[in-house]
Every structure is written in structure tokens, then in C-alpha cells.
Write a protein that binds this DNA or RNA. Sequence first.
DNA 1: ACAAAAGTGTTACCCTTACACCCATGT
DNA 2: ACATGGGTGTAAGGGTAACACTTTTGT
Lengths: 250, 250
Amino acid sequence: MKSEFTRILNKYSKINKEKSLPSISIDCVVFGFDTSSLKILLVRLKEKDEWALPGGYLWKNENLDDGAYRILEERTGAKEIYLNQFKTFGNVNRTKDFFDGHPDDLWQKQRFLSVGYYALTNFAKVEPKVDDLSDASEWKNVHELPNLMMDHEEIFNTALLELRKGLNYRPVGLNLLPEKFTMPELQRLYEIVLDKPLNRGNFYRKMTKYGILNKLKETRKGGAHKAPNLYTFNLEVYNEALENGFKEAW
Amino acid sequence: MKSEFTRILNKYSKINKEKSLPSISIDCVVFGFDTSSLKILLVRLKEKDEWALPGGYLWKNENLDDGAYRILEERTGAKEIYLNQFKTFGNVNRTKDFFDGHPDDLWQKQRFLSVGYYALTNFAKVEPKVDDLSDASEWKNVHELPNLMMDHEEIFNTALLELRKGLNYRPVGLNLLPEKFTMPELQRLYEIVLDKPLNRGNFYRKMTKYGILNKLKETRKGGAHKAPNLYTFNLEVYNEALENGFKEAW
DNA sequence: ACAAAAGTGTTACCCTTACACCCATGT
DNA sequence: ACATGGGTGTAAGGGTAACACTTTTGT
């Protein structure tokens, strides 16, 4: 008796044989941020008790980066997401045993290299979506991750390291924070990614010196206390810094 | 009339169809260093007027990193080379038109993603080798590169940027310099990679502080002037720094 | 009044840069 | 003597960390 899961696997086996490049998959570590925690988006495959990074295959006529954007949009509905390729994972045994019990000509059972991308998103703009093969798609706190399938834990760990290293020479915040945000909110973002407290005054000066912020005349009304100043990112400087970095030393 | 080149292409088309993963290639930017210049290893394909980075395909039962090491060894005879995966290149048109005129079922004509690695080697230990498909394998100065095929110039540029960025948090020199080397030689290496002069006294202090050097009692005799001190790398500290970096900030 | 936010000041420390000086030593 | 290498000194400047003080302002 074929299970529903197997039926769907077979369907996509046929489709992907037609449409996708063999040997290549794309996995995305989608970081999400709110005012209190750092989470990543995980999906649960039907009939498996493990979670997985959202991923997919690359179409035969599609640029690699475009494929990553497409897969992400399929999973989150979000566009204009910051995406960064960080490493390609290619151990022979990385998918070992995963499709045991399925026939060898199942497309998904072949050996894949996985190109890892990480994405930075805002919870509010993202609608986690299940697909035919998954029965759940949820945000999980990076400190309380469930068991991940294959080598997805290693992929996640590498992504988090890259993200933190990136804070030294890349700005962060666009598309994570609302368009207008306050200085304490920006600082919270950094503290949550780095998982440690930062000094307020020094943070203020550092950000100001980078020149990526526009200070608005408005303040955020409605809070219990003094209305904080609102900022937006100076897109020109921000994007220039994204491309070329803040500093390089030597 | 089939050319010799076509005959060989066809031979390898059959072999690789059997042996190698489809859609994936590996390209290596092999940096070589001597006392005066920075060069990379290039090969020239028979019957083409363009040069290429040495590369190859990944065997079906081979780890990605192992494949890169194997390809490098085939080309240079050198083992124990520092290899670093830096980016995967996957534009649809990156190999466009390259095998025009050849039949569509030629294995090499399919679309490939290329996983880029850069290697650091010592001229003296490397024996550039041609293979069936190439009629030349030469060191070329990075300031005087010939036309490169496909997107290999972009791959090279990215590698050089990564190499330079890496000097900020990774040690360099092992396997590039002879086992015993002098401080001025080490400084020359940095100056050649960075393409700019460095202050001697400050360089001396910086290196000393990193703690990656063992100072030997010996000196290098035979020079025209004062015999300089010899150093070796402290492998424990060196390798630790390679893995975890010198500093991370924040 | 209270509490959060904004902005600034201060101090100490470290690192970097750029020079400069002195010593050692092989030819 | 001379050229190179080794080692250290120093003064200026910039960045960071840690702390503290003041002012502003919404409830």
C-alpha cells in the first residue's frame, strides 16, 4: 500500500526529472527577528519526525541566485529579502539513509550538493507556507531547535557564524525592522543576533558614525514613556556598505 | 573530419557520464608565490585561444572537498596545499557558447555550476601538468592575465578579494614559504598578496604578537649581508588560528 | 513623579601608523 | 664602510569599553 507521502514524492520525482538540474539543491536558513528573539523557519516533512531547512531544486534555466530567491518566496511569500550565499555542502554521506526504503530511481534519492543561503526577514512580512511534502512550517527559536534532518544542523551553525561575522563589515536591519524604527530597536536587533548585551551610548555613536541612518523629525507616540526618535536607513549609504563593507584593515 | 580535440572530448564525455556527478564542476584559483610576484596557474585548452582555471568534475562517490584536492593534485603534483572553498558560481549563461559546434549530448556541454576553491602554493613544490585536453599549463602574473574563458575572470577576481580579506583574520605562509624562513620573506609575502608596502617594525611586532612563529637559533648564511634570523611556524597556534581566526570584534 | 529615551562627556586602554634610533653582522 | 636585518622607542591618532551625567518628554 502506497502512502500519501510516497505518492507525492513520486509525483515530484517526475516533475523534477524534467525541470530541475540534477545533483544540486538549495537550502535556506531563514532568520526571522522580532523584538525579543532570533528564530529560523523550519518545515516538517510528512511522515518524518525531523525538521528541515526550507529548500528546493534549481531549475534548468534559472540562475543560482534566482533559484534561491524563488524558493524563499514560495516558502514565505516575501520578496525583497536579503539573501547571501555562504557555502556549498558536498559530503557524500550528507543525505545518507534519508530515503531508504524508496526505489533507487526516485529523483530525490540521488546524491545532492546543497548550496547554502541565509536570509534575513521580518516575522510580520512572512507567511510560513506548507507544501505538498510538508505538514508544518514554523518559526523556531535558535536556542531551542528540534532535531534537523541530514546535515541541516551543520548548515544552520555555519550560517549563524557567517551572519555574526558579517556584522563587522555589513549593515543589518533593512527588511528586518519596520521602515521607521528607533535606536533601541536597532540595538535590540544587534543584541539578539550576537546574543549579548551592548553598551547603549557606544552603540549610538557607532551607528551614527556609519552614516547609514536618517534621523526623522517624528517620534513614536503611544509608548509608556518618552517618545523615541524614529530613523530610516539611508538606502544609498546602506547599499554601498552592503556591497563594499565598512572597513577592511591592512 | 574530427579533430584530435574533438576525439578527446568525446572520450572524456563517455568517461564522465559514468564517473562524475552531472551539473557540478570545480574550479581552482591556484595562487603561487615566489620572492617577487603573485601568480596563478592557468591552462590552455587545445584549439582555443583562451586560458582557463584548472578544474574538473566531482566523482559520484567523492566528497566535495576531496574532489578539489584531487583535481589540484592532478594538476600540480602538490599535496598538503591550503584549499579554501569561497563561492559557487551558477549563472545560466556562464558557459554559454563555449562548446558551440559540438553535439548537444556531449557531457561537457551541459550546464554546470562551478564550486570555486582557491589554493595557496609554493612555486618550488609545484609541477604544472598538462592533460589530454590542454596544451599548456603555466604560471601567469596576476597583473598580466590573458583572456580567460567563460566566467573565469570573475572567479579569479572573487578569489583574490577573498584571499586579501582573509589576511585580516587568518595566518598565511605555511606551504608557501620554505619550512624555515626569515621575517623579511614573510613580509614580502604579505606585501605581494596585498600589493602594497608594509612598515617593517610594525609588521614585526604584529607577527610576533600573533604567536604563530617559532624563532630558531639558526640564521641564514650565505647572503651578502647580515645573516637574518630563521623562523618556523608554530603549527599548533597556526592551525588554531586558521580554524578560529585571530579576532572577531563585537 | 517616574521611567524610558537621547545625547554627550570622560577616562583608560589598546591598536595602528609613521618615524627614528641603535645594535649586530657578513662581505 | 656599507647594506641589510633585528629590535625597540615614541608620539599622534583613532577606536572601544565602561560608566556616568544631563536633558527631554509621555503617561
